[in-house]
């Protein structure tokens, strides 16, 4: 991704913000500046910065590292899956499921990553939920651990 793409994305975002904000108006107005002005100002600034980047992109594009593309995609998918399964699977199980691909992306063997996930899932559950009183979902394991 180059600065130009980032700049173009900002232009689009600025335009979208301005379009969404144009009809923000207070039903009864008792102040000179309503809810629309500040978002519009920001939309303008964002478009301005975006056009600067389009016109004068930086010397070197950082670029996504192609050799890491697969591992990063794997880890990113694991993060989303973790978020989605957090409540339904419950914390200990979801953590195990997340730790396996993430651990492997970081160079652990599947045995190490799985074991790490199981240990972390249950140790953190006990520490946070039981010891520190931060309530965590138990999901599929609710029949053993209680809770929901």
């Amino acid at each position: 991704m180059s600065d130009r793409i980032l700049g173009a994305a900002c232009l689009v975002a600025g335009a979208g913000m301005a379009w969404a904000a144009q009809d923000y108006a207070a039903p009864i107005s008792y102040e000179p500046v309503g809810p629309r002005a500040f978002p519009l100002l920001l939309a303008g600034l964002m478009a301005l910065a975006g056009s600067w980047l389009v016109a004068r992109p930086g010397p070197q594009g950082f670029g996504l590292a192609r050799e890491h593309f697969k591992t990063i995609g794997l880890a990113a998918a694991a993060v989303f899956a973790y978020a989605a399964l957090f409540e339904t699977f419950g914390f200990p199980l979801a953590t195990t499921v997340m730790a396996l691909p993430v651990g492997m992306a970081f160079g652990g063997s599947w045995k190490q990553s799985l074991a790490g996930g199981v240990v972390m899932g249950f140790a953190f559950y006990l520490m946070f939920d039981k010891l520190l009183d931060v309530v965590l979902p138990t999901g599929l394991l609710s029949f053993v651990l209680g809770g929901r």
């Binding site: 997340m98 993430v102 651990g103 970081f106 972390m120 979902p137």
Partner: peptide, 18 residues
């Protein structure tokens, strides 16, 4: 090792948000 550290950070982060 990172393979233990990274999932640990993610888990604690998610606990914080949740």
């Amino acid at each position: 090792p990172n393979w233990a550290l990274a999932p640990g950070i993610l888990a604690v982060s998610a606990v914080g948000v949740f």
